[in-house]
Design a protein around this nucleic acid. Structure first.
Length: 419
DNA sequence: TTATCGTAGAC
RNA sequence: AUUGUCUACGAUAA
């Protein structure tokens, strides 16, 4: 491909449309220009051609990102950098073109932020390593990885693969867009914004360097984003590997290892992607640690809480989804027994709810009719005991509830608009 | 094939 | 109250 072809692929109509659709689907908030997705659609209709021309000549300057802090699970805060909707679309367009190119250069042991790869596969790989006799794990965690990426180092890695100067310039401009905090724009010499569609790809480009080094040294490892686990046969080997890799990361990649979160130990003592491992006589198995279970049970409580002001049917619908989603994620683990326990637990709670709300079929009948269910169906449903708390719903009712839900959402957005 | 919803992991 | 991105999976509707 000739060296200037790439930017035209990126700014191609179809690619940009595809990118816009993706950004819209995520329903994200506005950036510093306060333009939401609808407003941006208008804006792009009018200014699109100019912007494309600016991009193609390497003169496009992205807006700074909006600083938002969200609480993390462990009490800390996560600093997000939210680009303008326009910039998210452009970044998305870049990602769509660059991903297939860089995919070919990535390591087979890297699982985070990549198409057709999931946390499950990473967990399964780790489990296999332990099964093979690597009974110790070196867990390496990078400190504020996204905030510390060195621009020059990163750009040189990108330039190894991408030869198009204009595209390189565009990426660099995104890295240097700056941050808007309390109305003041500050420049950033390092880091890539958490919240930009481009950031995950850049993180993988950066850390592929680490993958290559680990492969070169012949280590058994799995990497998910900045969470890197190396499996070894003894504690002593683990300590040695940890030291060696820490040196490599800090000297060659110019990144910092988080000493507090990194450690060498038995897999059972550590959690990886929300699960832990233990060995029985024959094999290594995956289990769900208490912390994840507690999180799930908290959600369960919230949904079965009597003070929730939503209809019973809808509540069941939600519960069904919760259980299904959760079970699905942890089906790789040894949680069958736990799932069964949960199931009976839910049924018990739902039965308790039922008596409070719909003791009489006639009440339920009225309720169902209000949802727009045909009298015949409503009557049948109101009179079947099972229908009250069954985990999978009657499709007719499901549909009606769905409609009601959307009607509620619509009303809510209107009232938000007025007040 | 395209939308809507949900769960989980990561930053 | 405010709240971004990536990925995988599941359910539903045309």
């Amino acid at each position: 491909m000739e060296s200037n072809g790439l930017i035209y692929l990126i700014t191609h109509r179809d690619n940009l449309n595809e990118a816009f659709k993706r950004v819209k689907r995520n329903k994200g908030a506005a950036g510093v220009d306060a333009k939401d997705i609808e407003a941006t659609r208008q804006y792009l209709k009018e200014e699109g051609r100019t912007i494309i021309a600016l991009i193609q000549t390497g003169k496009y300057k992205p807006s700074p990102v909006k600083r938002v802090e969200i609480p993390k699970g462990d009490g800390g805060k996560r600093k997000l950098g939210i680009p303008t909707v326009t910039d998210r679309v452009i970044q998305q367009a870049v990602v769509q073109i660059l991903t297939p190119i860089f995919e070919q250069t990535f390591s087979e042991y890297s699982y985070g932020f990549r198409p057709n790869r999931s946390a499950h596969q990473a967990i399964e790989k780790a489990r296999a390593y332990i099964d093979e006799g690597y009974h110790y794990v070196v867990d390496i965690d990078l400190e504020k990885f996204f905030d510390r990426v060195q621009h020059d180092k990163l750009m040189s890695l990108v330039a190894n693969v991408i030869k198009d100067k204009v595209t390189l310039k565009l990426i660099r401009n995104f890295l240097q867009a700056g941050v808007m905090e309390n109305g003041i724009v500050s420049v950033n010499r390092e880091g890539t914004p958490q919240g930009g569609p481009l950031s995950p790809l850049l993180s993988n480009i950066m850390l592929t360097e680490l993958d290559r080094e680990l492969e070169k040294r012949g280590h058994k490892f799995v990497r998910y984003a900045d969470d890197c686990n190396i499996y070894v046969k003894s504690l002593k080997a683990g300590e040695r590997v940890k030291q060696g890799i820490t040196d490599f990361i800090e000297k060659k990649l110019k990144l910092k290892v988080n000493e507090e979160k990194s450690a060498v130990g038995k897999p059972i003592a550590r959690t990886f992607l929300g699960v832990s491992f233990y060995r029985n006589r024959k094999q290594t198995r995956v289990y769900v640690p208490k912390k994840s279970k507690a999180k799930f049970e908290a959600k369960l409580k919230r949904l079965t809480n009597r003070s929730w002001s939503i209809s019973m049917e809808y509540r069941i619908h939600k519960l069904n989804q919760l259980v299904q989603g959760w079970f699905n994620y942890f089906k790789i683990g040894d949680i069958k027994k736990y799932a069964l326990k949960i199931d009976s637990h839910i049924r018990r709670r739902l039965r308790a709810c039922r008596w409070k709300e719909w003791k009489k079929p006639s009440t339920k009948y009225r309720e169902l009719k209000k949802l727009g269910i045909k009298p015949n169906d409503a009557w049948r449903c109101a009179n079947t005991r099972k229908g009250y708390w069954r985990m999978s719903n009657n499709p007719i009712i499901d549909q009606a509830l769905n409609n009601q839900y959307w009607e509620n959402q619509r009303l809510k957005s209107i009232t938000n608009l007025i007040s």
